[in-house]
Design a protein around this nucleic acid. Structure first.
Lengths: 187, 187
DNA sequence: GTCTATAATTAGATAGAC
DNA sequence: GTCTATCTAATTATAGAC
């Protein structure tokens, strides 16, 4: 492997580790040392590749939205059955997306503004633009995303509290069935 | 005011400040100094009233569940219309509950176990015991809570992204209407 | 490019003045 | 009861060896 390839691989591993750590701990509680440990490098190398914790967070956000766009194309969050099933399946496999978004969305700061300008507005426009009022689209968007994601986002709690494993195929299917019955337009 | 009353008032103010700080920042990122500042006391007084950050967190959890039991009686999360409306209204006024629970529910640690044993199991049994399978109750519980809470939990994002203020009476009513149409049993 | 060492800040917890 | 001062540990960011 060439030196350039090694560098790129280190950078990639750091970003993947950052996604996990930011989602697990939230921005403030996440530490660059823990990210470095997850990636199998030293903390010095993290600050070599990313000048600041904020810059690393933005790289992690880009990676997260790459996964999101791949799993649930923009505009796919709505009352369409296939879209709902896709979103439930994605939420179950990628609970880190929900954690990352809730962590960013609760404080009106520079990170939220950057996230909206860079990723969120583009996705929301695709949902809101498909007919109906913006207000109704907003309510439907947060209701479907919240209903689809919470059980998987607090999977440890769900397991210990209800005895049901949200990661199982049966649970994912049952959750999708429930949401389709609740939100799918019966056209 | 007597000395004992002063002590009690300080203690109460610290707990209220802790609820806000833990909900805003999550357990790890929350600092006892920030909690002291919110309460208008010094950090030394916080550690006088509560021997550790963990003990303060449990006092904050007790306060949060007091509010929750008051606003949405155990067993009220289900497919009953009045219960759904009550839960939406409560989530809008108390987004700190959702943040506190998501923060605690994602890691299987001592805090989560304490929360389940002390508060969550009691509430979940009231939901699951009202007929139907435990599995179905679990799916419905997380779907309704997630759908009811997310918009208010990320209110800053919702405002900046959609232009809609989730705190307004109109938004709360519209959100409740959507959830009733989605989840209320049409018996 | 990657590491080690360290500076400056902040954390939770403790000790002691009043 | 409440505050100030301080200890130890952990944080981000920087500097420099190799």
């Amino acid at each position: 492997m060439t030196r350039a390839e090694q560098k790129e691989q280190s950078r990639e591993r750091i970003i993947d580790a950052a996604v996990e750590e930011f989602a697990d701990q939230g921005f403030r509680a996440a530490s660059t040392r823990a990210i470095a440990a997850r990636a199998g490098v030293t903390q010095g190398l993290v600050t070599y590749h990313f000048a600041s914790k904020d810059e690393l967070w933005r790289a992690a956000a880009d990676r997260i939205f790459g996964r999101l766009d791949e799993g649930t194309p923009p505009g796919a969050v709505g009352s369409d059955e296939a879209a709902i099933r896709a979103h439930v399946a994605f939420s179950a496999r990628h609970p880190e997306v929900f954690h990352f978004m809730v962590d960013a969305g609760r404080h009106d700061d520079d990170r939220l503004r950057w996230l909206i300008d860079t990723h969120l507005e583009r996705r929301f426009r695709a949902v809101a633009g498909s007919g109906g009022s913006t207000a109704r689209a907003a309510h439907l968007y947060y209701a479907v995303v919240g209903a689809a994601s919470l059980m998987f986002a607090v999977a440890p709690e769900c397991r210990a509290l209800t005895g049901r494993d949200p990661g199982s195929d049966a649970a994912i299917r049952a959750h999708a069935d429930l949401l389709v019955a609740a939100f799918a337009s019966s056209s």
